[in-house]
Measured scan of single mutants.
Amino acid sequence: RKEMTAACTPRRRIINLTSVLSLQEEINEQGHEVLREMLHNHSFVGCVNPQWALAQHQTKLYLLNTTKLSEELFYQILIYDFANFGVLRLSEPAPLFDLAMLALDSPESGWTEEDGPKEGLAEYIVEFLKKKAEMLADYFSLEIDEEGNLIGLPLLIDNYVPPLEGLPIFILRLATEVNWDEEKECFESLSKECAMFYSIRKQYISEESTLSGQQSEVPGSIPNSWKWTVEHIVYKALRSHILPPKHFTEDGNILQLANLPDLYKVFERC
């Protein structure tokens, strides 16, 4: 597991931080080997919608929660590849102030007048994250320049770009939802926020969305749709870069829909 690298990086740093090793061990302890084997050997059937997909393993048909699986995938990559990410360069710098204002204007932020003026909160978020810029760049390849612009994001899987519609809320939550006081809790909560931002979430995906850094293989055609990215990038990574937690067998994120021999018997009677 320590050699797990989802995106190509030129050289690998050895990380011996106790906090990170502890988080890696927790993933191992909570892992479910049968689910790992199923995901490793599954045959992708198709997307139901951005949140759900169908896959077959041996004779069984499964309904998989793409949102939760991708979130767990990105969390584990962030923990196992800690401080070893490439950088996704933004085509132009994104001012943190503008991103924070967009987030505060969104109902998702939960902002009320009692929280104070949005401009003041946005300025605080910019200054707060600028103070964390060195650590964010060093460990997470999340790059913020001296003017308070976001200029780079971590490359977690080759050819995958997170849904940038979720970027404003991500920046807001970096400042408000991460435990910045304790090292282990900081790395864990920061990785979880980043994983949620990178995950496939239906509120940020339309039929026209593209999450891939590449064009489709047909010359002159439109960019790959999110469905292509889910199948050929995300579920491909799920084959080798995730140890599913045991609770996925109990919380409805992986559901067995049918045993195909039983279905064949039904059709034979028709």
Rank of each mutant, 00 (worst) to 15 (best):
L35T: 13
L90M: 09
L142Q: 01
L63E: 00
G220L: 11
Q56C: 15
P163G: 04
E231N: 03
M135S: 03
P244M: 01
S206H: 09
G252P: 07
L96I: 13
R269E: 15
D115V: 09
V234C: 03
E114I: 15
S19I: 01
R239W: 00
Q51H: 04
V178A: 04
A122D: 01
S240T: 11
K131Y: 10
H232Q: 06
T18D: 12
D181R: 09
Y198R: 00
I222D: 14
I205D: 03
G166D: 05
Q56S: 13
E268I: 05
R239P: 00
A103I: 03
I77V: 12
Q203E: 13
S206M: 09
D115N: 08
D105Q: 10
S199E: 00
G152K: 05
H40V: 14
I233C: 14
C194T: 12
L174N: 01
L260E: 09
P261K: 12
F197G: 00
Q203P: 06
S216Y: 10
S106D: 11
G252D: 15
F248D: 01
P107G: 13
E25C: 09
W226G: 00
A53I: 04
S225P: 14
F170P: 01
R173K: 12
Y264W: 10
V230R: 00
C47G: 00
T67C: 04
F248H: 03
T112G: 12
T66Q: 02
L69H: 01
Y80I: 09
R11K: 06
A6L: 05
N41S: 06
E177M: 07
L190I: 12
L21H: 08
I125L: 08
T210Q: 07
G220E: 15
T5R: 03
P107V: 14
D262W: 13
N16F: 06
K192M: 09
L61C: 05
E72F: 05
E165T: 12
N28I: 13
F267V: 15
G220A: 15
L21Y: 06
D115F: 07
E182H: 09
H42E: 05
A122Q: 02
T249M: 13
I77P: 02
L63Y: 05
E183T: 04
K118H: 07
V178G: 01
P162W: 01
Y62P: 01
E37P: 02
C194L: 13
E231S: 03
P163C: 10
I200D: 00
V178I: 10
A100N: 03
K246P: 04
E143Y: 09
E165Q: 09
D115R: 14
C186H: 02
Q215G: 15
T66L: 02
P168W: 01
W228F: 13
S141V: 02
L64S: 02
N253R: 06
A6Q: 04
C8N: 15
T9P: 04
D105R: 08
P223H: 11
V266T: 15
S199V: 00
K227I: 04
N65D: 15
T176I: 12
Q215C: 11
I169H: 15
E182I: 14
P162H: 01
E183L: 02
F82L: 05
L23M: 06
W111H: 12
L238Y: 02
V48S: 03
A100S: 10
W52G: 02
K118R: 09
L238F: 09
D145W: 00
W111Q: 04
P163A: 13
G166T: 02
R36Q: 13
S141I: 02
K227Q: 05
S206Q: 15
Y62F: 12
I144V: 07
K131E: 11
L39G: 01
A122W: 00
F267P: 15
L153A: 01
Y124T: 10
P162V: 00
P163E: 12
H247I: 08
P223M: 15
I200W: 06
E119N: 12
G148T: 05
A55W: 02
P245A: 04
M196V: 12
P117M: 09
D138C: 04
L155P: 00
N159Q: 13
T229M: 11
F44D: 01
E177L: 05
Q56D: 09
R239Q: 05
F128W: 09
Y80C: 12
V87R: 10
K246Y: 11
Y198P: 00
I15P: 06
L99S: 07
Q256K: 14
L142R: 01
T249L: 11
M38E: 00
I169W: 08
E146L: 14
A6H: 05
H241M: 04
D251G: 07
K131M: 13
N65G: 01
E114S: 09
E37N: 09
R36F: 05
Q215A: 14
Q56W: 06
L21R: 08
W226V: 02
L17C: 05
V20M: 06
E143F: 10
L136H: 00
M135W: 05
H32E: 13
S216T: 09
A7W: 05
S19F: 02
G220N: 14
P163W: 06
C270I: 13
V218Q: 15
E183M: 03
G166A: 14
L63P: 01
C186E: 03
Y160M: 00
P219K: 10
P163M: 11
D158E: 15
A53W: 00
A237K: 13
L102W: 10
D262T: 08
L238G: 01
G252L: 04
A55S: 12
H32M: 08
Y139C: 05
W226Y: 05
Q51K: 08
I27Q: 01
Y204A: 04
F85I: 05
E3M: 10
L99F: 07
P107F: 09
K130W: 08
E113W: 08
V87E: 15
W111T: 05
L260D: 13
Y160T: 01
Q203H: 12
H32Y: 10
D98R: 07
P245M: 03
L102C: 13
E26T: 09
K118L: 05
K236N: 09
D145Y: 02
S91M: 07
G86A: 05
K184S: 08
S189E: 13
R1L: 15
I27S: 04
D251I: 04
V34A: 11
E217L: 14
Y160K: 01
I171T: 06
V87H: 09
E37Y: 05
G213M: 14
E143V: 11
C8S: 10
C47N: 12
E72K: 04
K60A: 11
N49A: 08
Y160I: 01
C47P: 03
A7V: 08
R12W: 12
A100R: 00
L150M: 07
I14P: 09
L90V: 05
Y124E: 09
P163L: 10
T66D: 01
I151C: 13
P10Y: 05
T66F: 02
K192Y: 07
Q51L: 02
S141E: 05
D105M: 09
S199K: 02
L155S: 10
P93C: 09
I144M: 11
E143H: 10
H232P: 01
K265S: 11
E134L: 09
Y62Q: 01
A53Y: 07
I77K: 06
Y264P: 15
E72D: 03
L172S: 06
P223C: 11
P219L: 09
L88K: 09
T210S: 07
Y124W: 08
T112P: 04
D158S: 13
F44Q: 01
G110C: 15
E193G: 02
Q215I: 08
Y160P: 02
S221H: 09
I169L: 13
T249R: 12
E123N: 13
L190V: 14
Q76L: 01
L39Y: 01
N65Y: 03
E114Y: 08
L167I: 06
F267H: 15
G120K: 07
V161R: 11
T59L: 13
I169V: 15
F44M: 04
P261C: 08
K246W: 09
L64K: 02
L64P: 00
Q214V: 13
E127L: 11
L23W: 02
D251Y: 04
N28R: 13
V230L: 05
K184R: 14
E134Q: 07
S240D: 14
V45H: 09
I27Y: 02
G86C: 12
S141F: 02
L23S: 04
I171W: 02
K236S: 08
L35C: 08
Q30L: 13
E143P: 06
T59W: 11
M4V: 09
S199I: 03
Q24D: 02
F140K: 02
S91Y: 14
V230I: 09
L255H: 13
F197A: 00
R201I: 00
E146C: 07
A103S: 09
L167E: 00
P95I: 05
E113P: 13
E217M: 13
I200S: 02
G86S: 14
Q76E: 03
E33H: 11
F128Y: 09
T112H: 12
L260S: 12
V20N: 03
N16R: 09
L121T: 13
E185R: 10
C194Y: 05
S225N: 14
Y139Q: 03
E26I: 06
S191G: 13
C186Q: 04
L260I: 15
Q76M: 02
G220S: 15
L39A: 02
A94T: 15
S43I: 10
